[in-house]
Design a protein around this nucleic acid. Structure first.
Length: 157
DNA sequence: GCCAACGTTGGC
DNA sequence: GCCAACGTTGGC
């Protein structure tokens, strides 16, 4: 069981979208970065927990918890010529981009990026590293436990 | 809207 | 395989 932080733009898919359909599987489509893809393909397992992070918005930060609900499979948008995620170099036989599904777990107390930056205990988080643009980053167990407590999430609930 | 950081592309 | 040019991310 691993822990992750996944960035999403709330204008497109925010925590409220997931909360509105708590049983639904949301394909995490649109990742076009090899490192992020490899995390999904090689390391994510069903049941892994995710810090759901809002980016490119008025106040960036962690807005809730989701979980990985499928293993990786091909991203349909890479074959869709009308999609902005279309990739002409990808084929059905040899798809370049895969993704997992995620499912809603909980909304939490909002933990803003600025608060995260202020906290020396979180200074090792990859998402806070200078220049980091990865949309998916692993989160250590220590950091997970600390943040979970901070935002009022308990795993058993 | 700006721009720093960084990934990708493509010519050579 | 180098690296300049270009595109994208994402906080501010």
């Amino acid at each position: 069981m691993k822990y992750w932080l996944m960035k999403s733009e709330p204008d497109e898919v925010g925590i409220d979208h997931l909360a509105a359909s708590p049983q639904a599987a949301f394909p995490w489509f649109g990742v076009r970065n090899y490192q992020a893809r490899n995390f999904m393909r090689d390391q994510m397992q069903v049941g892994d927990l995710v810090l759901f992070y809002h980016s490119s918005c008025e106040e960036p930060g962690i807005a809730g918890i989701a979980k990985v609900s499928s293993t990786a499979y091909p991203d349909a948008t890479q074959f869709d010529v009308t999609s902005k995620y279309y990739d002409p170099k990808s084929t059905q036989e040899n798809p370049r981009w895969v993704h997992v599904d995620v499912q809603f777990v909980s909304k939490t107390t909002f933990l803003s990026l600025s608060k995260m930056k202020e906290d020396p205990l979180l200074s090792d988080m990859l998402v806070l590293k200078r220049g980091n643009r990865l949309s998916i980053t692993p989160v250590s167990e220590i950091d997970w436990q600390y943040i979970a407590e901070k935002i009022g999430f308990s795993a058993g609930a």
